[in-house]
Design a protein around this nucleic acid. Structure first.
Lengths: 215, 215
DNA sequence: TTCGTATTTATACACTTGCATAATTACGAA
DNA sequence: TTCGTAATTATGCAAGTGTATAAATACGAA
């Protein structure tokens, strides 16, 4: 008769929230937002479903928090990796493009998440704001790198032209990122970053593929 | 007391199936596959839910049929529009790129559908096959146009190189298509086709933006 | 060690979901 | 016109959904 009650451990609020968010992200990537049910999330986080209510007053709130976490992590990851590269401005630009199109940034799971969230992003104001913020962040950074690389090559361009170049390069990078994550088998290893560097270089009129000297 | 039974009209099987499929697609675009419930689909098609069972033995079957219809329509649409252009091989290539990145092909709804279906496409064998077939169709066609344009310009390339160029251009086009549909406000009208033509031209080494003479 | 309380589990509820089945009705064939 | 039957509606059901609330327990403070 002793239907032993489940044992549990008390965690800090941050740890539990993080665990619930990660469980949510993995389920959203697999089955979409509606497929990530409260019960499934609780199970994956190894917790009973009532606990979710204790940390997030609603499923909507959990999903929004998960999206925010994911987007921030992605942006940070990209910039962190790319920032490690030493060299000329041209090298920096090439590195950002490469980083954006290689694992762990370019990754089927990340694209699956992007796709799963798209509906909600288009309808929920808060998620839309998060999306636009991270998008603008990336694009401004890219624009700065393009300007620096062109300066370095002795080329000056108007602000209008620079804006156009950044939009074009950003579109190509994001597009290839999506494409690579959606069809990982359509490209040979390393092919996607190569296409990205080639395309971005062609658009702005610099050869990004030739590396500067490195010791 | 006379809870008048709902009046109805008998339609042909094809008409009803088509109506149900269109209702399904519009709901999937808005709310994802799980959000497109049998009851919501029936309501949008102005029919009671039991009827769906009469034409499709399961919701899965309806969703699969809807996906197939959508993908086929998209491919046909793209090729049909692009094929109307007269001119040189270079013009044909430019037209395909432009068509792919303009309405009605490039369109937020189409991208929303793509995103909503992504999960299922990756998991369901039949949908995966449909996806790969339409993808390969487009890419082969693109490759032929690239070869013709290069021939015309007196340039010959190896098969390996041609394959790489087609992959790169296809990635850029699909990527920009996704990007444009996901962020319709990020680009000025006509900007996206311009970026596409510019990028594809840069990748293959031809200026696609200069039109051949047209009467 | 005891005790208080925030954390966690357990249970329940109202509603939605896909699917099944019985009851009606429109419409072509005779 | 009548009549048969396929098309359509109406109703029901078991499983799954998000959320609410009460009961139990781990663990730091005293």
């Amino acid at each position: 008769m002793n239907d032993a009650r489940r044992k549990f451990k008390r965690e800090t609020a941050d740890q539990r929230k993080e665990a619930l968010i990660q469980a949510t992200l993995s389920l959203v990537a697999e089955k979409g937002v509606r497929g990530a049910t409260v019960r499934a999330i609780a199970e994956r986080a190894d917790v009973t479903q009532g606990l979710i209510r204790h940390y997030f007053s609603t499923k909507e709130e959990l999903v929004t928090a998960a999206y925010e976490t994911h987007m921030t992590e992605m942006t940070d990851l990209t910039f962190t990796i790319a920032a490690k590269v030493q060299g000329t401005a041209r090298d920096h630009l090439a590195a950002l493009v490469r980083t954006s199109l290689e694992p762990p940034v370019a990754d089927p799971r990340a694209v699956a998440l992007w796709a799963s969230f798209l509906n909600k992003v288009q309808q929920d104001a808060q998620m839309k704001a998060t999306h636009e913020r991270t998008y603008a962040d990336f694009r401004d950074r890219l624009q700065d790198l393009i300007r620096a690389a062109l300066d370095e090559a002795g080329q000056s361009v108007s602000d209008t032209r620079l804006h156009h170049l950044a939009t074009a390069c950003n579109g190509v990078i994001d597009g290839l990122w999506l494409e690579g994550g959606a069809l990982p088998d359509a490209f040979a290893p390393g092919e996607l970053p190569g296409i990205g560097v080639e395309s971005v270089g062609a658009i702005i009129g610099l050869d990004l593929e030739q590396r500067a000297n490195q010791p």
